[in-house]
Design a protein around this nucleic acid. Structure first.
Lengths: 118, 118
DNA sequence: CAGTATCCTCAATGATACTG
DNA sequence: CAGTATCATTGAGGATACTG
């Protein structure tokens, strides 16, 4: 059993690591991953928690991160339908690292100069 | 002397922390910040290092991060003109946190499922 | 070298409506 | 509830040419 020993190179545009970086640092990807550190969440919960995201973008982001293996989807055949999203083990790894960043930003925002968008 | 005691909230769409997060996690922002952890770099050096970035996007990214106070620009009036970009103290804080993420991705890319773009 | 100025294009994003 | 489908928008991003 061997996982690839090859290391990624973010500075090479064609390296898959660049795509993965883009996924996890995408506009909604960061917030989705960090949200799920608090435990599994339903679609509608994420929708409400991450203010501003649309159905479409949330769905798309979840699919992308599922495909990368960071998120798992559990569907319960109840009535009404219930679906939960949770972090996989590698998902926890990235999410924890992202959380260190987002928490620093939240804590330091008062000291940051031009926090203005646009 | 007091810096704002207010904490940011990334889940609020209008909170400045969201804009800052977008800046530092932007496509080229991550790579620029992490690159500068290795010391000051000239424009052309960054351009060559971060394969795929255009003059325009590099310039734009540098300006945005300067405005946020993460990067400083030093111009030396030599001939030919020399300009160096370096991390500020808060820039070092974010860059270090980003590097933890990027290094994990580079190391783990072999084990990540769908590292496919698009 | 270190950028800026223009033009252009496509893909990311969002609003709306609909489905299982 | 948990999405998908469609359409419209726009702005991020890139190519090219030019400047101090």
């Amino acid at each position: 059993m061997r996982a690839s020993r090859e290391r990624g190179d973010l500075y090479a545009p064609d390296c898959p690591s660049r795509a993965v970086l883009d996924h996890v640092t995408s506009r909604w990807g960061v917030l989705v991953l960090v949200s799920l550190l608090g435990g599994p969440h339903r679609f509608s919960e994420l929708r409400r928690l991450i203010v501003g995201v649309s159905d479409k973008m949330l769905s798309q982001t979840l699919k992308l991160l599922q495909h990368d293996g960071f998120i798992a989807r559990d569907a319960f055949l109840e009535m009404p339908l219930r679906v939960e999203y949770r972090l996989t083990s590698s998902g926890v790894q990235v999410a924890e690292r992202l959380a260190v960043l987002t928490e620093w930003i939240e804590d330091s925002i008062g000291a940051i100069e031009g926090a203005r968008p646009k």
